[in-house]
């Protein structure tokens, strides 16, 4: 009896404190058809975002024999295959770099991007059970899907450091630009992921499009080949693909070879900004009716 009373006391006080902290009144009404998700609300729900990321990271390699080694194996084995077929047999040049490092440093952001748009694209549809039962800003779902892959990126990055040691590559001061290119990679992934997630919630065709899209996009990104192979209008087209800037930028920033991506950066930033703004708008538009259609 005494114990129950004590519990009751603590509970009551916590309820009162909550009241004082959030005397907010939530107003529920039809929203405008077009608008942006509220960043303040995302911030308010940051703890849930953290737990969604944590869940994705924890669950991804559960019940696999190799566990987190998969984060390394995927880009690493791809690099081996690429080095063999493109580097050795096809003789694709890799500038001053050994082909394995050349391709691996490109595969790092590429894996983040391709897996990110895939996971983010499926995320809303896969979270239908949440979306129809509880409220939170839906943007957290694709956001968490992308952020969870940063852990994989970090693990795979360790292997790059090993390769740099092996080939005795010392980064120059350009390495300071690395965070910028990394951020660009994240934003590109998020922008495309938002579009795909929102589309996929309504049109399940998207899940068949994504593998195809990633395949084509890989050829439009200088992961396998260096961009100096392309000239004129092709070069410009390549520059419009933000992943080009990411891959070439990381190569330059981490390995200190090639020229810094110049004006191409601004073209990429522009494209990403456009994709992100339209993606957020479209996502918010879908969010309004998400629980009814997903």
């Amino acid at each position: 009896m005494g114990k129950t009373d004590a519990q009751f006391e603590t509970r009551t006080s916590s309820v009162l404190r909550l009241n004082r902290r959030e005397t907010l009144v939530v107003r529920i009404q039809p929203s405008r058809r077009w608008g942006f998700p509220s960043l303040g609300e995302i911030w308010h729900y940051r703890e849930l975002l953290y737990f969604l990321v944590w869940r994705d990271v924890k669950v991804r390699y559960k019940q696999t024999v190799l566990g987190a080694a998969w984060a390394v194996l995927q880009p690493f084995l791809t690099m081996v295959v690429f080095s063999l077929f493109f580097g050795r047999f096809a003789g694709i040049p890799s500038g001053e770099l050994p082909y394995p490092v050349f391709s691996y440093v490109g595969l790092l952001p590429w894996t983040l991007f391709s897996q990110g748009i895939n996971q983010a694209g499926n995320s809303l549809a896969a979270s239908a059970h949440l979306v129809t039962k509880v409220y939170f800003p839906r943007l957290l779902i694709p956001l968490a899907a992308v952020l969870a892959l940063v852990v994989d990126f970090a693990i795979a990055f360790g292997v790059l450091l090993g390769m740099m040691l092996y080939y005795r590559i010392v980064p120059t001061s350009a390495v300071l630009w690395f965070p910028g290119f990394f951020l660009l990679a994240l934003l590109t992934t998020l922008a495309v992921g938002l579009w795909l997630a929102a589309l996929n919630a309504q049109y399940r065709d998207v899940r068949y499009v994504v593998p195809f899209l990633t395949q084509l996009w890989l050829f439009a990104t200088p992961v396998i080949y260096p961009s100096f192979l392309l000239q004129g209008v092709w070069r410009v087209l390549l520059g419009l693909n933000p992943m080009t800037t990411v891959v070439e930028g990381m190569r330059w920033a981490l390995l200190g070879v090639g020229a810094p991506p110049g004006r191409m950066v601004w073209a990429s930033v522009g494209v990403v900004a456009l994709l992100l703004i339209t993606g957020l708008l479209y996502f918010r538009h879908t969010e309004r009716t998400l629980a009814d259609v997903v």
Partner: peptide, 8 residues
């Protein structure tokens, strides 16, 4: 419209 006060 509806208004709800406090944590839901």
């Amino acid at each position: 419209w509806a208004e709800v006060q406090g944590r839901v």
